[in-house]
């Protein structure tokens, strides 16, 4: 048995930022969360919720579809936010407790690569969770659509159907094949990524995962405040009031702009420009919060 050199040793004077290392850490983070199996409990819960919603038959097709959309979107919103906050809050403390962080950071790995890998892994995982839930949501909707349409037709074919029946069927399609649903889910995902980044930032200085979760809970509950602050700071007469409100809207992300569940259920149309500007806001907020977290982590004593 010999210990031969893997590659000729080169004297390097610098080490550049490496996306490959970030990717290694990201995939490892996904493996971690997936193999911990907590995720399955969450997903099963979501599946059950979506599945169950299709059994609530309502008085009218309109009510029925609304309740399904409402339940499913709410499930996606809750689950992604929960996984984002709870999952991310556990990452750093468990690394520190298990001392795995020592072995990683004593390899030629930048701290920012480590943190980015963690955030990217979690975001990627949430992407899959969102896709899985959306596919299920779509399946529930399509099944229900089929049932409702055949009920409306009552044995006749679509070509022979009377105008009122055609109108009903079109109304059903308007609900189930609504592009606003996809926009809403997309923004929920953007919110989840923002929450991941923010939780990671908090956990760089938090003393435990519980601490991070509680802080994030407070931020989550105060989010409506940010929406109000965002709207009224310009009309504040005093400078102090303005600065105070600006501070609030800076510290607390405007999450309600990303959760359009109620609007979509109420049948409001979501403009593409709105989606773009909100995504831009979310991306910028995510980036700033990440940068802050990376800065704190850089100085952290391990």
């Amino acid at each position: 048995m010999s210990l031969e050199a893997v590659q000729p040793m080169q004297e390097q004077d610098s080490l550049s930022f490496s996306p490959a290392r970030v990717w290694v850490i990201a995939t490892n983070t996904m493996t971690e969360v997936i193999r911990q199996k907590v995720l399955y409990v969450f997903i099963l819960f979501g599946l059950a919720l979506c599945g169950a919603s299709s059994f609530f038959t309502q008085f009218s097709f309109n009510e029925e579809l609304k309740s399904i959309i409402d339940t499913c979107l709410a499930a996606i919103k809750l689950l992604t936010a929960l996984i984002a906050v709870v999952g991310t809050a556990m990452l750093l403390p468990s690394e520190i407790e298990n001392r795995t962080i020592y072995t990683i950071l004593t390899k030629p790995v930048y701290r920012i690569e480590f943190l980015l890998g963690k955030v990217a892994g979690m975001s990627l995982l949430l992407f899959f969770v969102t896709i899985v839930m959306s596919v299920l949501f779509g399946a529930v909707l399509l099944l229900d659509e089929k049932a409702l349409v055949s009920h409306a037709l009552q044995g006749t074919s679509l070509l022979q159907a009377s105008d009122p029946v055609k109108q009903t069927i079109n109304a059903i399609y308007a609900q189930t094949r609504n592009p606003n649903l996809i926009k809403a889910i997309f923004l929920l995902y953007a919110q989840a990524v923002l929450l991941v980044s923010m939780t990671m930032m908090v956990s760089t200085f938090a003393t435990s995962s519980l601490f991070s979760i509680i802080i994030m809970l407070v931020i989550y509950m105060c989010a409506p405040l940010a929406t109000i602050a965002n709207e009224v700071w310009k009309s504040q007469p005093s400078i102090l009031g303005r600065v105070g409100l600006m501070f609030i809207s800076f510290c607390i992300p405007d999450l309600s702009s990303m959760t359009l569940v109620d609007d979509v259920v109420a049948g409001k149309h979501v403009l593409m420009s709105y989606v773009l500007s909100t995504t831009g806001y979310a991306a910028l907020y995510t980036l700033v919060v990440f940068a802050l977290g990376a800065f704190i982590f850089q100085e952290k004593e391990l």
Partner: peptide, 13 residues
């Protein structure tokens, strides 16, 4: 290369 004291690694690997 470092071998830390009482090392623990990723339990799931």
């Amino acid at each position: 290369g470092l071998l830390p004291e009482n090392p623990y690694f990723y339990r799931y690997l």
